[in-house]
Design a protein around this nucleic acid. Structure first.
Lengths: 193, 193
DNA sequence: TCCGTTGGTCAACGCTTGTTGGCAACCGTA
DNA sequence: TACGGTTGCCAACAAGCGTTGACCAACGGA
């Protein structure tokens, strides 16, 4: 018999499935795609490697399931127009500190084509619309969204992936104070050409 | 007999050695550390994998030799103080477009501890001194250098590694026009706290 | 001409990887 | 109690990896 809701049979194995996903996120974030082996992930989750295959098909499927994420970016209309930059930086910083999904995504995106496309999709689907509503000229929205990404992802890269000591040492408020105006300028300042 | 100059015996194998390094840079830049296999690099260079081992010891040695680089950053004293930002961005953009060494370094640094440390060293040794000479308060130099790195590496990440289409589409002059003032502010603007 | 050094190939090693199929234990239901 | 589906472990596979050592060909000074 078919369920009305397609994806919630409330299986007995739910605990194992989420244990696998948690371990996978941790390993992908720490090691990247290739070095995060299914065997290591399975050991972290205290199950047999073959279980990973049964529940997620193959390694790519596991990765896709582990990094499914909704950025939940704030509605720009809910902020004064000259505070959108600071608001976005604050929100991103919170996302990055909360869990390891974005670190995993960034680390894998740097070496794995599928990971890069996933990252591309997330920013195109979730950041670009915000830029469209906030930028002076909608035609410039993609370029401005790319600039915002470059600064936000650049900070994440130096702070959470490469771990440059002075980037790690920055207090969150400092990050917001420095990057907020930058992002604000990329969003709303007139084109500098 | 010892040579007076320790590192230039002008060997007959010089052509092979540089062919290996060129192939290695290309593969590391395209695939990252793990997927850039010695076998693939050797095939690109039209030699046997064992030659790579003989000339560079092991894979780590090959990587170290392939990404040895001097950024040759311009002397900040040679520019008007309010043009240092634009000057640095222009220089970095040139470095990145010229060859694949920095792309290789960035891609590997994202998944490989040794690569990350190498990158850390390069920026600490080559960018930090510049900041020290240009920042208002030398004590803030590390933090400001980290901010500059975050923006410069962030652009490289989105443009050359993740290849976000709008980041790839930006003309070099546009990149300088947008990022120059940002870097300038990170270097010389008063602390925003 | 001989012979040591150098440049290069070949075949194999031990190991790890993703992935598969078989089999035992458990569960809820009839 | 019997049974079909779920959950899990185990052993193994083929392929690919970094790395090694034996071996051959060409060079160059004596």
């Amino acid at each position: 018999m078919m369920q009305s809701k397609p994806a919630a049979p409330a299986r007995r194995s739910e605990a194992t499935r989420t244990a696998i996903l948690d371990a996978a996120r941790e390993r992908f974030a720490a090691d990247g795609y290739e070095r995060a082996t299914i065997r290591a992930i399975a050991k972290d989750a205290n199950i047999d490697p073959s279980m990973v295959m049964r529940y997620y098909g193959n390694k790519e499927g596991l990765f896709a399931a582990a990094v499914a994420i909704d950025l939940r970016l704030p509605d720009p209309a809910s902020l004064p127009r000259d505070e959108v930059g600071r608001g976005l930086v604050t929100h991103f910083l919170g996302l990055w500190e909360k869990n390891e999904v974005l670190t995993a995504l960034l680390r894998v995106g740097a070496t794995n084509e599928a990971g890069a496309e996933r990252m591309q999709g997330i920013f195109a689907d979730q950041l670009l619309p915000i830029c469209r509503r906030v930028c002076p000229d909608p035609e410039q929205a993609p370029a401005r969204a790319a600039l915002v990404s470059s600064q936000v992802l650049g900070l994440a890269l130096t702070r959470y992936v490469l771990r440059f000591p002075p980037a790690v040492a920055l207090a969150p408020e400092e990050v917001v104070a420095w990057l907020g105006p930058t992002v604000q300028r990329y969003l709303t300042a007139p084109h500098p050409a």
